Computed example of a mutant assay.
Amino acid sequence: MASPTAGHGLATRPRYALRLLALGYLVFLLVLPVVLIGWRTFQGGIGPVLDALTSSQAQSAFRVTLIVAFWTVLANTVFGVGVALLLVRRDFPGKRLLNTLIDLPMAVSPVVVGLALILVYGRFAPVGARLEDLGIQVIFSTPGMVMAAVFISLPLVVRAVIPVLEELGDEQEQAARTLGAGSWQTFRRITIPGIRWGLAYGVVLCLARALGEYGAVAVVSGRLVEKTQTLTLFVEERFQNFDEHAAFAAATALALVAVVTLLLIKILRPKG
Rank of each mutant, 00 (worst) to 15 (best):
F79W: 10
A84Y: 02
P110Y: 03
V81D: 00
N76H: 10
L66T: 09
L66A: 14
N99F: 07
S109Y: 12
V111P: 11
F70L: 15
L87T: 03
A69T: 10
R96I: 11
L85S: 14
A107T: 14
L104N: 15
L86C: 07
K95I: 15
R90E: 13
I102K: 05
V111E: 08
V81N: 01
G82K: 00
A107R: 08
P110E: 03
G94C: 13
T72A: 00
G94S: 12
A69E: 10
L87V: 06
P105Q: 06
A75H: 03
T72W: 00
T100E: 09
V111Q: 12
I67F: 12
R89H: 10
A69V: 07
P105R: 11
L101A: 04
I67Q: 15
P93Q: 07
P93A: 04
V83A: 02
V78C: 04
T77Q: 02
N99W: 08
P110N: 07
T77G: 02
A107N: 15
D91R: 13
G94Y: 14
V64W: 14
A69M: 08
R96C: 04
L86A: 09
L104W: 10
N76Y: 02
P93W: 07
P93I: 04
R63S: 10
D103T: 12
A107F: 14
V108N: 08
I102P: 01
V64H: 13
N99T: 14
V81E: 00
V73W: 06
K95M: 05
F79P: 00
T65E: 05
V111N: 03
I102S: 04
V64I: 08
N76D: 13
V73D: 10
T77N: 06
A69K: 03
T100P: 02
L97G: 05
F62K: 04
F70Y: 14
D103F: 15
L101W: 09
R89V: 01
L86K: 01
A84E: 00
L86D: 01
R96W: 12
F70E: 01
F70S: 06
G94M: 06
G80I: 09
A75L: 09
L97D: 03
T77K: 02
T100C: 05
L66H: 13
F70D: 01
A107W: 15
V83N: 00
T100I: 14
R96S: 11
T77S: 15
V68S: 08
A69H: 08
A75N: 06
T100M: 15
K95N: 05
N99M: 15
T72M: 01
V111A: 13
N99R: 15
L101P: 01
S109I: 09
L98T: 08
L86H: 00
V68P: 11
D103Q: 05
V73Y: 04
L101Y: 11
R63G: 10
V78F: 13
R63V: 05
P105C: 05
R90F: 06
V83C: 01
